[in-house]
């Protein structure tokens, strides 16, 4: 446990835990809406913000936050009004964001695309004390929204049309999800990087739902998985000297595979039991008229 003596490792672990909580917390609503890749899109757009931060020589985290929030709101507007051409518009937004980031960074006075790599793949050990303050504030907002409004967000993500007819402010809630996802991307940017951030929004949720039956339990388990993998990934990268982002994502995928392997026999057993029950009912009801009855042509 000697790694706890280093201030940079303490900051790294705090940052890792914040990401472990926030990414699955908002990711579960994206998965529920079947928009698992939205986080990836926001990550691409955030890159333009990072580039802009370099160019203006201000804190890239804040500029990236502003740009990714704007990008997420744009995506939500495209979803409302875009209809059939919506996916093309989204593709342009994603790749435009990526290209813009690379272009702006190379135009920056002391910028080179080597600086970008910190943001593309994460560099958890370079997190500064002021970064931690920023991340805590953003993470606090994410938790407040995803926990405080969980029933409303659940309803909107489960069946949007029905939610509108119950009188919920659906557009406002959708925008809130988009903004919250954007903030999560910038929280996670330094830990796993913009290209891998979506993995932490989606895979812990996918892993949890291999063994869960309710939304609440899935929510709590996904966060538990998220914190476990970000902390263990950060510690592993300290000892083995490998990039933290890649380590965290590979551990998450490993956990998904293990949980799936454990859950499959369980699900089969449940299915067999259900099938056996159905068979019993059928036998009781249909034995007297067995066979032939259904084949007979009514006179």
């Amino acid at each position: 446990m000697e790694f706890l003596d280093y201030a940079f490792m303490q900051r790294a672990l705090i940052a890792a835990a914040l990401v472990g909580v926030t990414a699955p917390a908002i990711g579960i609503y994206l998965v529920q809406r079947r928009q698992a890749l939205m986080g990836d899109g926001i990550g691409h757009v955030a890159l333009t913000g990072v580039g802009l931060g370099f160019l203006l020589q201000s804190n890239p985290v804040w500029v990236a936050t502003a740009v990714s929030v704007a990008g997420a709101v744009a995506m939500e507007l495209i979803r409302w009004y875009g209809k059939t051409r919506g996916d093309i518009a989204l593709a342009m937004l994603f790749y435009g964001g990526m290209a813009g980031g690379v272009m702006l960074t190379s135009l920056a006075p002391n910028g080179s695309n080597a600086n970008l790599e910190t943001y593309l793949f994460g560099s958890i050990t370079t997190v500064s004390p002021s970064d931690i303050t920023t991340m805590c504030l953003l993470a606090g907002f994410v938790v407040l929204v995803t926990v405080g409004l969980r029933r409303q967000l659940f309803a909107v993500s489960q069946d949007e049309e029905f939610a509108r007819v119950t009188g919920l402010p659906v557009r406002l809630l959708n925008l809130l999800v988009a903004v919250t996802a954007a903030l999560t991307v910038t929280v996670a940017m330094r830990v796993v990087g913009l290209l891998l951030v979506s993995a932490l929004m989606v895979i812990p949720v996918a892993a949890a739902q291999q063994v869960t039956r309710s939304f609440l339990v899935t929510f709590v388990s996904a966060i538990a998985i998220g914190v476990t993998v970000t902390l263990s990934g950060t510690v592993t990268s300290y000892y083995v000297d490998v990039p933290s982002g890649a380590t965290i994502v590979l551990i998450t995928i490993g956990l998904f595979v293990v949980l799936t392997a454990l859950a499959t026999p369980l699900a089969r057993k449940r299915a067999r039991k259900a099938a056996a029950e159905r068979e019993r009912c059928t036998l009781e009801v249909e034995v007297p008229t067995a066979r032939g009855a259904s084949e007979e042509v009514p006179a």
Binding site: V31, Q32, R33, S157, Q158, D159, T212, R213, F215, T218
Partner: peptide, 11 residues
């Protein structure tokens, strides 16, 4: 009645 994430009847 299902979405992308498991949910119970009550939920």
């Amino acid at each position: 009645a299902a979405g992308g994430v498991p949910a119970t009847v009550r939920e």
